[in-house]
Computed example of a mutant assay.
Amino acid sequence: MSLPNLWHHRRVAEGSAKACWICYKPSTSVLITPDNKDFFYICVGHLKDSGFCQPDADEVAAATARKKKEELDREIEKIKKEYEEKSARKREKRKEKEKEKDKDKDIDSKKQEEEEDKADEKAKDEKIKELSKSKENAQADDGPRIFILNKNFHQMRIDKIRNAEIAKRNRERLKNPANFPSVPSGDL
Rank of each mutant, 00 (worst) to 15 (best):
L3C: 01
N5E: 06
L6T: 06
R11T: 05
V12W: 07
E14A: 15
G15E: 13
G15Y: 08
A17E: 13
A17F: 14
K18Y: 05
A19G: 07
C20Q: 06
C20P: 00
W21F: 10
W21Y: 11
W21R: 14
Y24G: 09
K25P: 01
P26M: 09
S27Q: 03
S27E: 01
S27H: 07
V30K: 09
V30F: 10
L31D: 01
I32H: 04
N36T: 08
K37P: 06
D38G: 04
F40C: 14
Y41L: 06
G45R: 06
H46G: 05
L47K: 05
K48T: 06
S50A: 10
S50W: 08
G51L: 07
G51M: 05
D58F: 05
T64C: 08
R66W: 03
K67N: 10
K68D: 11
K68P: 00
K69F: 06
D73K: 10
D73V: 01
R74N: 03
K78E: 14
K78I: 01
K81Q: 13
E82T: 09
E82A: 11
K90Q: 12
E92Q: 11
E92F: 04
E92A: 15
E92S: 15
K93P: 05
R94V: 07
E96C: 07
K97P: 02
K97D: 15
K99G: 04
K99Q: 11
E100L: 14
D102G: 15
D102Y: 06
K103A: 12
D104Q: 08
D106C: 11
D106N: 12
D108N: 11
S109G: 06
K110W: 15
K110M: 12
E113V: 12
E115I: 08
E115F: 10
E116G: 04
D117C: 07
K118R: 14
K118I: 12
A119V: 12
D120R: 15
D120L: 15
E121A: 08
A123M: 14
A123V: 11
K124V: 08
E126K: 14
K127A: 13
E130Q: 10
E130C: 06
L131W: 08
L131P: 01
S132Q: 14
S132W: 04
K133A: 03
K133W: 07
S134N: 04
S134A: 10
N137T: 04
A140Y: 07
D142P: 02
R145T: 12
R145E: 13
I146L: 11
F147V: 05
F147I: 09
I148R: 14
I148D: 06
L149R: 03
N150V: 09
F153A: 02
F153K: 03
H154P: 00
H154C: 05
M156C: 07
D159G: 03
D159A: 05
I161V: 12
I161Y: 05
R162M: 10
N163T: 08
N163F: 02
E165F: 11
R169D: 09
N170Y: 02
N170V: 09
N170K: 03
R171K: 10
L174V: 06
L174W: 02
K175R: 14
K175E: 03
N176V: 04
P177V: 02
F180V: 02
P181E: 01
S182D: 04
S182P: 00
V183G: 00
V183L: 02
V183S: 00
V183P: 00
P184F: 00
S185K: 00
G186A: 09
